[in-house]
Simulated scan of single mutants.
Amino acid sequence: MPAPNRALVTEPAAQLLRRLADQHGALMFHQSGGCCDGSSPMCYPAGDFMVGDRDVLLAVLDVGDGVPVWISGPQFDAWKHTQLVIDVVPGRGGGFSLEAPEGMRFLSRGRAFTDEENRALEAIAPITGADYERGARPPANGTHVVADAADACPVPLRST
């Protein structure tokens, strides 16, 4: 089994990213673990957020020229068994993410990887900020865009 993508983006979020890229140029995400906006994915112009040597690259979303998705090393240790799905909803977040003036906010959804997916991911070393500086990139393994969050994170049916 090929390793699954560690991060995906919904088509509505990808559409917003394309508009933001037209306005701001190349983009990047950092999955926040901060206080004010909880654990929202924060979207910045590429290079406006300093990626640390121990931050981990989850994926480069195949939107526009490619949008890297970063997470801090300690937060990755807690989330490494979870596929991050970046979605968008109406509203305003409390951070400095680029979508705020659009009246939208990015949010993270997640799906736990299966045991088989976890085994496949264990065979691939995570790419850190230091690795990225040396030219390491994640393997290309299909699109990162899903039509809807439910396609990647199905909502369990409630029994009545």
Rank of each mutant, 00 (worst) to 15 (best):
A125P: 14
R105C: 11
G110C: 03
S40M: 09
R105Q: 12
L57Y: 10
G135T: 13
M50S: 14
E133I: 09
P154T: 08
P138K: 10
R105A: 11
F106W: 05
F96D: 10
D62S: 07
V88F: 03
L84N: 03
G47Y: 04
P68W: 08
P68D: 09
A78W: 02
A112R: 09
V67S: 09
D131V: 11
G93Y: 05
G110F: 02
T82N: 08
D48N: 13
P41Q: 06
L61D: 10
A125Q: 14
G52A: 13
A78Y: 01
Q83E: 14
L58D: 10
V56F: 03
D48A: 13
A130H: 04
S39V: 14
G110D: 00
P90Y: 09
D77N: 10
F76S: 01
A140G: 07
K80V: 00
A112P: 02
A46T: 03
N118S: 07
A147Y: 01
V56Q: 04
G110P: 01
T128K: 07
V146Y: 03
P90G: 11
G34T: 09
E117L: 00
G110E: 09
C43N: 05
S72W: 00
C36L: 05
W79G: 00
P138F: 06
G93V: 05
R92V: 09
A59D: 15
A120F: 00
S40A: 14
H81K: 12
S97W: 06
G129L: 09
A147F: 03
G73C: 03
Q75A: 12
H144L: 05
I127S: 10
S108E: 02
W79I: 06
G64F: 02
C153Q: 13
D77C: 04
G34Y: 05
P68L: 07
A100Y: 08
L98T: 04
A100V: 15
V51H: 04
V69N: 01
C35P: 11
E117Q: 15
A136F: 05
G64K: 03
D77F: 01
Y132W: 06
A120S: 14
Y132D: 07
R119A: 15
E102P: 00
E122V: 05
R119E: 15
A78R: 02
V60N: 14
E133A: 15
E102F: 09
G73K: 03
D37T: 08
N118W: 01
F76Y: 15
D37N: 15
P41W: 07
V60W: 11
M42W: 12
G135Y: 07
E133G: 07
A149Q: 14
Y132C: 04
D115S: 11
V63M: 11
F76Q: 01
T114G: 06
V89E: 11
R119Y: 04
T143R: 06
E116N: 07
A152R: 06
V85F: 01
R134I: 00
S97K: 08
D77A: 13
A46E: 08
G66K: 06
E117A: 00
L61Q: 04
R105Y: 08
G38L: 00
P74M: 00
I127L: 13
D65P: 07
R105T: 13
G73Q: 02
G103K: 04
E117V: 00
E116I: 09
